[in-house]
């Protein structure tokens, strides 16, 4: 499935954010977000990670990350 990985914004430079998830940092565009994003916010990224698709509440992001950790740990990947 097309799993999204909620990613935490660690830096913002103009319309580009550096985001982190599972110890991996990558850069993503904020151009398609409907609302302002700040460092510390969680976003889900579109396929390939080039564009942030949506901001998600921290509680939901953490629940999803915990679920994904379980998927990896159980070898369901």
């Amino acid at each position: 499935m097309c799993m999204a990985v909620p990613s935490r914004i660690v830096a913002i430079d103009g319309q580009t954010a550096t985001v982190e998830a599972f110890g991996r940092e990558r850069q993503t565009s904020l151009m398609l977000l409907d609302e302002e994003a700040l460092v510390g916010d969680y976003v889900i990224l579109g396929a390939g990670g080039n564009f942030a698709a949506e901001k998600v509440p921290q509680e939901t992001a953490l629940a999803t990350l915990e679920y994904l950790s379980g998927v990896l740990a159980d070898g369901l990947a």
Binding site: M1, C2, M3, A4, P6, I44, L45, G46, A47, A53, E54, V56, T60, A61, A63, T64, Y67, L68
Partner: peptide, 10 residues
């Protein structure tokens, strides 16, 4: 979890 688990078609 469901709506945030998918990059597309959430």
């Amino acid at each position: 979890i469901l709506p945030t688990l998918f990059a597309l078609c959430g």
